[in-house]
Nucleic acid binder design. Structure first.
Lengths: 122, 122
DNA sequence: GAAAGTGTATTATCCGTAGTAGTACACCCA
DNA sequence: TGGGTGTACTACTACGGATAATACACTTTC
């Protein structure tokens, strides 16, 4: 569920953050759902508890989860539109970079449609 | 021309690489155009010559420029379609991430069109 | 009340990468 | 010959990611 890539250049805590957002967007993690504990998830992934804690703290900072000492971490009441905006951040940068490199809007749209056709979201 | 952002999280040599590709795509840097020397560009940007050299070496490795000891570095014969593919690499990743987060193809295209309207490439 | 599990905090350490600094070499050209 | 070129090398610093080992306060459960 929270599978990560230890060889990736993307930091583990950032992968965990994004993965959580994904699961929320897909409706797999619903409001009030309890997240795995810091220690158990760390053990499952084979990473340090501090790394998981860092991801959780950023998720809480952004209002995606809330944590209670002694009880655990839980999915917050989600504003899906807000999360979508978050998902757009990296996308916007990539679009601007492509436009800078003289790629046209139409080319990008075509590209997306091609990618979308072969994409299965599960 | 080769303005870079020293505060960015993106490594300087990578910024230089991308900037060069941009300038080639725009037709500003044409085949056989001489690049600034490693030392002069380093001085101009206020960075270490090694950092510029690293960017040049990657550009040469990817066939975008060619370097001749004692003479300088020059823009190669460019396959623009190939360069465009390079520009698409980061873009594709961003698209896939967005799709994973349950954003639709149509939403992405609309997003691009909005960005494209307010975009001036100079 | 005790124990186990929770998030949180702290400190120290290791490691890889980016970047700097300095130097040296072989090359080309005027 | 001298100055400019790319290239190579070593040493060093700085920073962030990640680990390791504790410790603490809290909640839940028995």
């Amino acid at each position: 569920m929270f599978n990560i890539d230890l060889t990736s250049r993307v930091p583990i805590y950032e992968q965990l953050y994004k993965k959580t957002v994904e699961l929320v967007m897909k409706g797999i993690l619903k409001e009030q759902t309890q997240m795995p504990s810091v220690r158990s998830l760390a053990k499952e992934l084979g990473v340090n508890p501090n790394t998981v804690a860092k991801a959780y703290q950023q998720l809480e900072h952004d209002g995606i989860i809330y944590s209670v000492a002694g009880r655990g971490s839980f999915i917050s009441k989600i504003n899906h539109q807000e999360l979508k905006e978050y998902a757009f951040e990296d996308f916007d940068k990539a679009v601007i970079d492509a436009l800078k490199a003289s790629v046209t809007v139409d080319e990008l749209c075509d590209r997306i449609k091609n990618i979308g056709e072969g994409f299965r979201n599960d």
